[in-house]
Design a protein around this nucleic acid. Structure first.
Lengths: 267, 267
DNA sequence: AAACCCTGTTCCATTATTTGAAACTTGGTT
DNA sequence: AACCAAGTTTCAAATAATGGAACAGGGTTT
């Protein structure tokens, strides 16, 4: 599943957790066993331990396992401490209000795009409904602009991991096409999604770069071909650039209090 | 930290993960060690393994650990498969649109309230809550209504785990006061938060009960004493009850496709 | 009913991994 | 140069993980 699996027992158990998550639906023990390298009792004990620990949830009626609620709790802490989202939040709010279209905030995670925040024009803040979702890097606006500004070695490493599955007639179908696109993006400083992932869905995307030029994440404004076109989206370039700059600046100055914030504050 | 810690190496490692998350901020190895029962090398290896596995993120500049992004990915799967949120979503959307105030969807998790979804009011109150966040059960609207409809044995078990920290002058200060309140809630079928957790913040809360009467979760509509009062919130009782009933009904019929949903869809 | 699955669970001797006191390294401070 | 604190590695002993095999339990077929 793309992970190292090393790290002794811990790594093995977490591989099982990934395996369950990858199913995308509650899964039976036998299904896990069928595609597992572990012998039956070994897998059984991992699943038991993870369930005890509430990393998996067991449904006794259906006899199925699914990722457990403890993950939701832990993820909240991760989201607040290890992603750009808390720093970016006010800026993403302001951007969302200004453009009135769907806004995404993303980071790169294991050669994939990880969406860490989203604003719906109509319906603000639906956290994990989209945040936490992963998507392909080679055919999304945010993915491509992040790839474009990695150092070359890293870019190649990530390109090598892309699947180049063809979603639409506009999907970039191979590494060569993607490299040409990345050159364009580097020249312009930003990029588009030209219905490459979903028909009718287009976006303009802007990298969030640290002062040193390191890729921190990316922002995008998404719309549909019914409502506008690429030229129309281009109008958002300057506000996207400003927003990205502000987020990068704040990320630089971001520091956590070294006293123990006693979390007596509300929900 | 409330966990069993058993389950061999896996349980121990996850206890470390919880420990890091509990800090609520990036934490140094020595800080973990100071409050840990594990000897230095043992703790060290757990932290290493978790970091390799991206369950923790290491910041080399500050030499600190924080919960890692892999959790965000996994939590998305957990949220979609092991919580009420996906079933409730359309109903919560409709409720939110109808009432124009902040709406919360919560479940009970280890004697705490776990918020699993949220819709902001049209003009949002400055209040900090998100999916994944946990809160106290004894002094929130959703917490109390869930407690009220557990079976008595379970109710007592959960009451025994409450801290009864006094947040405001209205906070229920002990188990006896909470039990009286739960009796009231059982009689009415729903409950309020009377500024018990945060000054100026009030809410009306409704349990989500299965046909068999099992507690599935709770819904609340939150506002401020500036904008309304308890009598004003009471106007939402019927729509809350209807929404809760619909969610319970859908949760009953909820079934996962047994074919492999191939997830080619975009964000 | 008996024989036969298929799934999930437990046994237990073998094996490999974890364990932790102590020693060592690194970087900063007196 | 001596000291100190935080982090890292070593290695024999202790412990926990491993997996072949055998055992339930529920359902279906003979």
């Amino acid at each position: 599943m793309g992970h190292v699996t090393g790290d002794g027992t811990v790594g093995k158990a977490l591989a099982v957790l990934d395996q369950v998550a990858a199913f995308g639906r509650p899964v039976r023990f036998s299904e896990l066993l069928a595609q597992s390298d572990f012998p039956k009792p070994t897998l059984y004990r991992f699943v038991q331990a993870l369930t005890n620990q509430q990393m998996l949830a067991y449904d006794p009626d259906r006899q199925t396992y699914a990722p457990g609620v403890r993950l939701v709790r832990l993820a909240h802490a991760a989201w607040e401490q290890s992603t750009l989202a808390p720093v970016a939040r006010p800026h993403v709010d302001a951007l969302s209000k200004a453009v009135g279209e769907t806004v995404h905030l993303a980071q790169l995670d294991n050669a994939q795009v990880l969406y860490i925040d989203k604003r719906n024009a109509a319906n603000p803040v639906q956290m994990y409904s989209q945040a936490g979702k992963v998507g392909p890097a080679y055919c999304t606006g945010v993915g491509k602009v992040m790839l474009a500004f990695l150092d070359l070695e890293m870019t190649e490493k990530v390109i090598a991991q892309q699947s180049f599955h063809v979603f639409t007639e506009y999907t970039l179908a191979d590494a060569a096409a993607l490299r040409r696109e990345l050159d364009d993006i580097r020249a312009n400083g930003y990029g588009f999604d030209r219905e490459e992932h979903e028909p009718g869905i287009i976006c303009i995307a802007m990298p969030i770069l640290s002062e040193g030029g390191r890729v921190l994440g990316a922002l995008s404004v998404t719309s549909t071909t019914n409502r506008t076109n690429l030229a129309g989206l281009e109008a958002y370039e300057s506000i996207l650039r400003e927003t990205a700059t502000k987020i990068a600046r704040d990320a630089q100055n971001w520091s956590f209090p070294d006293y123990n914030t006693n979390e007596a504050t509300g929900i």
